[in-house]
Simulated scan of single mutants.
Amino acid sequence: MLKTHFKTIVISDVHLGTKGSKAKEVARFLKLYSCENLILNGDIIDGWQLKKSGSWKRKHTRFFNRVLKMIEQEKTNVFYLRGNHDDFLDQILPIQIGNLSILNDMIYESNGKKYFVTHGDIFDSVTTNFRWIAQLGDIGYTFLLWLNRLVNHHRRKRGLPYFSLSQYVKGKVKTAVSYIDQYEIELAKMAKAKGCDGIICGHIHKAENRVIEGIEYLNSGDWVESMSALSEDHDGNWQLIYFNQISFKKSPEEKIVYFPVRDHKSVAFEAMPDGLTPKSSFYK
């Protein structure tokens, strides 16, 4: 299997503990791609659903087993940022254990650029007019996911590609479109206010890579529907990778493809003033 090596990979919104979580797919994704830095940008574990009707399965544990192997065998630096669904992390963060750091948010520096990295739920607490998305989403979104599984079961039988019902609904409902547009604009403003060149987030389950008023807006999407991740090569170029577009062709032997390295030393991580500053010995 051809294995590609990136400088940084960002994954968010896996929602382990729920029926909709694509735990097998994200674990397979992390076997195919290696990286120096892995950012788990919130809602990796869905504590909300686990408290109500969710269940923890073996495939959910396998995801963390894969992450641990990346730390131990590939020396990957892993950063787990708190999301609104895994807000139970508030009780322990910030904390650092070896190459694993658990933080609220962080500043990522690479190739002369600074990125503010946050899950993105902070937007909901600031703009109370859009709190409906969290309240309605917990019930309505769960229903859409159930319906989505039913629709795609029949589509697979007919040989049709995967269809995201909830993404379709989000694109048709005016209030949802307004929320997403406002979300992206406000987070770009936040990054600018913090003196950053870009924002890296998740939360709304809508992958994106675009420029908003001079600020790079990067959203890693989710592993419930879109199954997407952000990746950065060693020249600082960001791209979105979609699991459904990956070719899993077998080859006689596994190879690792490294992207051109401009300057490994240009990578640096810095916690927010009230957070944790990772040890410099992690980054060589």
Rank of each mutant, 00 (worst) to 15 (best):
212 I>V: 12
11 I>E: 01
216 E>V: 10
168 Y>C: 13
54 G>N: 07
259 F>H: 13
269 F>I: 13
190 M>T: 11
281 S>P: 04
54 G>V: 08
47 G>D: 08
247 S>I: 02
159 G>Q: 07
116 F>G: 02
239 Q>A: 13
241 I>C: 05
197 D>V: 08
232 E>Y: 07
140 G>D: 01
183 Y>V: 12
143 F>T: 11
197 D>M: 05
170 K>I: 02
113 K>Q: 14
83 G>E: 01
244 N>L: 01
171 G>Q: 07
9 I>H: 05
123 F>L: 08
254 E>T: 15
269 F>A: 04
124 D>S: 08
49 Q>I: 05
7 K>L: 12
135 Q>S: 13
116 F>P: 00
188 A>L: 07
133 I>P: 01
158 R>E: 09
95 I>L: 13
210 R>M: 11
151 V>D: 00
54 G>C: 09
263 D>N: 15
32 L>K: 00
150 L>M: 11
4 T>L: 04
175 T>S: 15
62 R>D: 09
29 F>R: 01
270 E>G: 09
57 K>T: 09
159 G>I: 07
80 Y>D: 02
61 T>I: 12
254 E>P: 07
139 I>F: 06
235 D>Q: 15
174 K>C: 13
229 A>Q: 02
116 F>H: 07
111 N>S: 12
114 K>P: 06
258 Y>P: 04
156 R>N: 09
95 I>C: 10
1 M>Y: 00
34 S>I: 08
261 V>D: 12
71 I>S: 05
179 Y>C: 05
103 L>Y: 04
14 V>F: 01
88 F>D: 10
200 I>Y: 03
90 D>R: 14
49 Q>V: 07
160 L>N: 10
175 T>C: 12
115 Y>D: 06
254 E>H: 13
277 T>M: 08
179 Y>I: 06
178 S>Q: 15
1 M>V: 00
55 S>T: 14
65 N>A: 12
207 A>F: 00
10 V>N: 04
58 R>S: 14
22 K>F: 03
149 R>Y: 02
13 D>R: 05
270 E>N: 15
49 Q>C: 08
145 L>Y: 04
136 L>G: 12
91 Q>F: 09
228 S>L: 02
173 V>S: 01
257 V>S: 10
40 L>S: 05
167 Q>K: 12
17 G>V: 02
204 I>G: 02
131 R>P: 04
195 G>E: 03
174 K>V: 15
184 E>V: 10
283 Y>T: 11
113 K>H: 14
24 K>S: 13
122 I>H: 06
73 Q>R: 15
214 G>H: 06
84 N>T: 11
199 I>P: 00
47 G>M: 00
83 G>R: 01
268 A>T: 13
230 L>T: 03
103 L>F: 09
154 H>V: 14
242 Y>Q: 10
3 K>D: 01
68 L>S: 14
189 K>E: 13
139 I>Y: 06
225 E>C: 04
272 M>P: 04
76 T>L: 05
25 E>S: 13
187 L>H: 07
270 E>Q: 15
72 E>P: 09
208 E>A: 15
187 L>F: 08
48 W>M: 06
28 R>C: 03
119 H>S: 07
40 L>M: 12
79 F>Q: 02
54 G>Y: 06
203 H>I: 05
75 K>C: 08
67 V>S: 03
278 P>Y: 02
178 S>K: 15
23 A>H: 03
259 F>W: 09
208 E>K: 12
233 D>M: 08
44 I>C: 04
128 T>D: 00
121 D>P: 06
